[in-house]
Design a binder for these strands. Sequence first.
DNA 1: CTCCCGATAT
DNA 2: ATATCAGGAG
Length: 222
Amino acid sequence: MNKNLPLSERERALKIIKILKSTYPRKNHVSGDPYKTLIRCIISQRNRDEVTDRVSEELFKRYPTIESIASASVEEMQNFLKSLKVGLWRSKGKWIVETSRIILKKYNGRVPDKFEELIKLPGIGRKCANIVLAYGFGIPAIPVDTHVYRISRRLGLAPWDASPEEVEERLKSLIPREEWIYVNHAMVDHGKSVCKPIKPRCWECPLRGLCPKIGVQDTSSQ
DNA sequence: CTCCCGATAT
DNA sequence: ATATCAGGAG
């Protein structure tokens, strides 16, 4: 399905991955706990990592098991999240409890390792489903979060008007399966430090020689 | 497309 | 004051 692409496109993608790897060396970490990965992913939506870390820790301290979360009422979970000052606490509280109940009852407490099943869970969309596959199970997947989305398009790896899903398919066609999980790691690291949404630090970017800077507004000064 | 939500970066 | 943050649902 992806054999008609010009070789140079894939070569460029490979070159990008190679440079990212030497800049942001990181082992593909598999959590070994898909359930915690999934809950963390719900909490992480539209949040900074520091918030996600803090809230996840408090959540699992108060509710150590899937059973304890599933048996909490939605309102109780919402109030708990609210007390921790997480944004979107109403949605997230509902999703965390309901998804946990479904996993417990329908899947006997085992998080499904199929995309089609994961995406049916409340609060689990494409990105979280792929996160669970990649980081919970170690199954090749490319979670397209805000960083992967932005950077892929700036690099011209996907059209500027592509949807997140289209970016995901495009990356999958360009990048060998063994590197899929790494893509998210690399672009998140790169996106937070250099290829930032506002005022990216293009002058110190290891990819500047390969980048058309699509959609980049301001590359000047600090 | 809008809403959900509070905190922080710019 | 506005944009953005490891998005997803209606």
